[in-house]
């Protein structure tokens, strides 16, 4: 359970390694980073961001475009994560890729064209849900076959087993007396 989740998070956090470099040099002795109260006044205003991401977010919420960005991002895999989608991953690259999704949509590309762009760059691997074509059809087909086949087996079993006990042959059980459980209300 632990390790892959770990990997997942390490990926999420990939970015801020710069932190160690930049703040280590800037504030190694002072302890990292300087407390805002102490440093706030004289520090230059436009310091680089430190943390999970250095991106300035552009997430709006209500527009139809954002809804499309969300729905497409949810189907694309974050390259540096363990199976998280672009939508879910807080990693910097995922955020930047969401930005690409947004930009391309703003330019008028359709959802499929955006997906196609990422497939061209990262391969089919980028799709969290494989395309239902070619070999990958199996991953959709087999569970459906399992349910249908299983239902057929259940049907056959139910038929075979519901042979009235008295007429069934080769039974080593005496016919059980009907239980009051199935009777009507007392």
């Amino acid at each position: 359970m632990i390790p892959v989740r770990m990997a997942m998070a390490t990926c999420i956090l990939r970015v801020a390694a710069a932190v160690a470099a930049s703040t280590a040099t800037a504030g190694a002795q002072a302890g990292l980073p300087p407390a805002p109260a102490a440093a706030g006044a004289e520090a230059p205003p436009s310091q680089p961001m430190i943390g999970l991401t250095t991106q300035v977010p552009t997430i709006g919420v209500d527009s139809a475009l954002e809804a499309r960005v969300k729905s497409v991002s949810a189907t694309l895999r974050c390259p540096v994560c363990q199976g998280l989608s672009l939508q879910d991953s807080p990693s910097e690259l995922a955020q930047q890729m969401r930005g690409v999704v947004r930009e391309q949509m703003a330019q008028g590309k359709s959802d499929d064209e955006v997906r196609q762009y990422f497939i061209a760059k990262y391969g089919d691997w980028i799709l969290l849900k494989p395309k239902a074509e070619g070999f990958s059809t199996l991953v959709y087909l087999l569970p459906a076959l399992f349910v249908v086949g299983g239902a057929a087996v259940v049907w056959v079993m139910a038929k075979r087993w519901s042979v009235p006990v008295a007429t069934a042959q080769g039974l080593d059980e005496p016919a059980p007396t009907p239980q009051p459980v199935s009777a009507t209300a007392p």
Partner: peptide
Amino acid sequence: PGARTAIDFGVYG
């Protein structure tokens, strides 16, 4: 900036 070219090349890391 924004890793746009990196994404264009399909960079993972």
